[in-house]
Amino acid sequence: GATAVSEWTERKTADGKTYYYNNRTLESTWEKPQELK
């Protein structure tokens, strides 16, 4: 079946920190989402 992984995108802030952005829920998080573990 379909997985939720594609909803999350790994992004970088202007100062180079990595965060994760969810295209479906429009939420962002510093922690790696469960779906990516």
Rank of each mutant, 00 (worst) to 15 (best):
R24A: 11
R11W: 09
G16N: 05
E31H: 09
P33D: 02
K37R: 10
T9Q: 13
N23K: 09
N22D: 01
G1R: 01
K12Q: 14
E31P: 03
E10V: 10
T29Q: 14
R11C: 12
R24P: 01
D15C: 11
T29F: 06
Y20Q: 01
A14D: 10
T25E: 02
V5I: 13
K32M: 12
K37P: 10
Y19V: 03
E10W: 03
K12L: 12
N23V: 14
Q34V: 12
R24V: 15
K32Q: 08
T25R: 01
P33K: 02
T29S: 11
N22L: 00
A14I: 10
V5G: 15
T29P: 01
E27I: 08
K32E: 08
L36G: 06
A14M: 09
S28P: 03
E27F: 04
K12T: 14
Y21K: 03
A2K: 06
R24G: 07
N23T: 15
V5K: 06
W30S: 07
T9M: 09
T25I: 01
A2F: 14
E27V: 09
G16V: 00
N23A: 08
R24S: 11
Q34G: 10
T3M: 12
N22Y: 00
R11G: 06
K17A: 08
G1F: 13
Y21T: 05
T9P: 00
A14P: 14
R11A: 08
R24M: 11
N23L: 12
T25Q: 01
Y19Q: 03
D15I: 03
E27A: 06
E35T: 07
D15W: 07
Q34E: 15
V5N: 12
T18L: 09
K12D: 03
Y21G: 01
K37Y: 14
T18W: 04
K32L: 10
E10S: 04
T13Y: 03
G16A: 02
E31G: 04
K32G: 03
T25D: 03
A2H: 13
L26P: 01
E10L: 06
A4R: 03
A4G: 12
R11T: 05
Y19A: 01
K17T: 09
N23E: 15
P33V: 03
Y21A: 02
Y21D: 02
A2I: 14
W8K: 00
K17I: 09
S28L: 14
K37V: 15
E27K: 08
K32I: 11
S6I: 09
T9L: 07
K12W: 09
Y21V: 09
T13W: 03
R24L: 15
A14S: 11
E7A: 06
K37F: 13
A4F: 06
A2C: 05
E7P: 06
E10F: 03
E31T: 10
A2Q: 13
T3Y: 06
E7K: 03
K32N: 05
E35A: 11
Y21E: 06
V5C: 07
R11L: 14
T13R: 03
K37D: 14
P33F: 01
K17F: 08
K17P: 01
Y20I: 00
E27D: 06
K37A: 15
L36E: 06
R11H: 12
D15Y: 07
A4Q: 14
Q34P: 12
L26E: 15
R24N: 11
W8T: 01
K32W: 05
V5L: 12
S28N: 05
K32F: 05
S6L: 11
A4Y: 07
E27S: 05
R11F: 12
Y19W: 06
W30V: 06
K17E: 09
L36A: 05
V5W: 11
E27G: 04
A4W: 10
G16S: 02
K37Q: 15
T29N: 04
L26M: 15
T25A: 01
E7W: 06
E31K: 08
T18C: 04
D15Q: 08
G1Y: 10
W30I: 04
K17G: 06
R11I: 12
T18G: 02
E31Q: 09
T29K: 08
D15L: 05
T13E: 04
D15P: 00
W30T: 08
K17D: 07
A14F: 08
S6N: 13
Q34W: 14
L36K: 04
Q34F: 12
Q34L: 13
E35Y: 05
E27L: 07
K12I: 13
N23P: 09
E10Q: 06
T29W: 05
R24D: 08
V5R: 03
T18D: 03
E35D: 10
V5S: 13
E35G: 09
E35S: 10
D15M: 05
A2E: 13
N22K: 00
W30E: 06
A4V: 15
T9G: 05
Y20A: 00
S6H: 10
Y20V: 00
Y20S: 00
D15K: 05
L36T: 05
K12F: 10
R11S: 06
S28V: 15
D15T: 08
T13F: 03
L36I: 08
R11P: 00
K32A: 07
Y19H: 03
K37G: 15
S6D: 11
E35R: 04
